[in-house]
């Protein structure tokens, strides 16, 4: 039941991605709507799967590589739906759905074998730490998607290629603002994830930081977004530079996450 609803979700995400992909080439009224509807249906099945696993595991379903990636994708689609609902930005789906779909697809091939949780991990900190970590990562994922849209649109404006996508993409200012808004939401959550993680580590293992790869990468990511966040206020780093940095920041999260899923060492073991 849990596995089946995951497969159905993946199928609908695939349909959504195809609709969003063709939307890039041919402007119609139906394609963006179809993509949005497919995501909603996929998301409902995905939610069923997440809830099912939650009850089956007895805690937040992120303790094997499959579950963790799937939960990440779930957060991305959740934010996508919220964003699409509240802003209705042209072509948002074409840039964000592929990120969510890729995560779901990767998740579908990863191992779902769970080892029983060690006593240290079996703690309420598990829920708090991972919730902050995943929601902030999802916010950064969407910020990166919008930053990419910004770069595409900026390229059009600088090169004076003003047909096709240019007409349908939102204005630079809007992309920049919403991307920044996502970062202002993601950054405090990410900070909380790091703080809650270190308190938990201190409680469980007696030290705040053990220089695991994911901890190091997380600190790098945190620094990058701290730069995005503050340089905008102080030096007015906005637009292009902020966009490039947001994408780099998201890339470090993916590296950290991939390392976590593949290396399987240390406290963040599945």
């Amino acid at each position: 039941m849990g596995a089946l609803s995951f497969q159905i979700a993946l199928f609908f995400y695939l349909l959504a991605m195809l609709a969003a992909f063709f939307d890039l080439f041919k402007s119609t009224r139906i394609l963006p709507k179809a993509a949005y509807m497919f995501v909603i249906v996929g998301f409902l099945f995905h939610t069923t799967n997440v809830v099912y696993s939650w009850f089956a595991d007895g805690h937040i379903p992120i303790v094997n590589a499959h579950e963790a990636t799937s939960f990440f994708a779930w957060c991305v689609f959740l934010l996508f739906l919220l964003l699409e609902y509240s802003y209705k930005l042209g072509l948002l789906g074409s840039f964000i759905i592929p990120i969510g779909f890729a995560l779901t697809l990767v998740s579908s091939v990863l191992s779902s074998a769970s080892k029983p949780l060690t006593p240290q991990l079996r703690s309420y900190w598990l829920g708090i730490h991972t919730f902050f970590a995943f929601m902030s990562s999802a916010a950064f994922a969407l910020a990166a998607g919008l930053a990419f849209m910004y770069l595409v649109q900026e390229h059009h404006l600088k090169r004076k290629r003003l047909g096709g996508l240019f007409e349908r993409l939102p204005s630079l200012q809007r992309l920049d603002e919403i991307s920044y808004r996502l970062i202002t939401m993601g950054f405090p959550l990410f900070t909380l994830a790091i703080i809650s993680g270190s308190i938990w580590a201190d409680n469980a293992w007696g030290s705040y930081l053990s220089w695991e790869p994911i901890q190091v990468w997380s600190i790098i990511t945190w620094l990058i977004f701290a730069v995005v966040f503050h340089s905008r206020l102080l030096a007015g780093w906005r637009g292009r530079r902020a966009a490039v940095l947001s994408i780099i920041g998201f890339a470090t999260i993916i590296i950290a996450f991939a390392g976590l899923a593949l290396l399987q060492k240390g406290q963040h073991i599945f």
Binding site: L157, F166, P170, S171, L172, Q173, R174, E177
Partner: peptide, 8 residues
Amino acid sequence: ELAKKIFT
């Protein structure tokens, strides 16, 4: 029109 693609 171009200005509207830079500033919302």
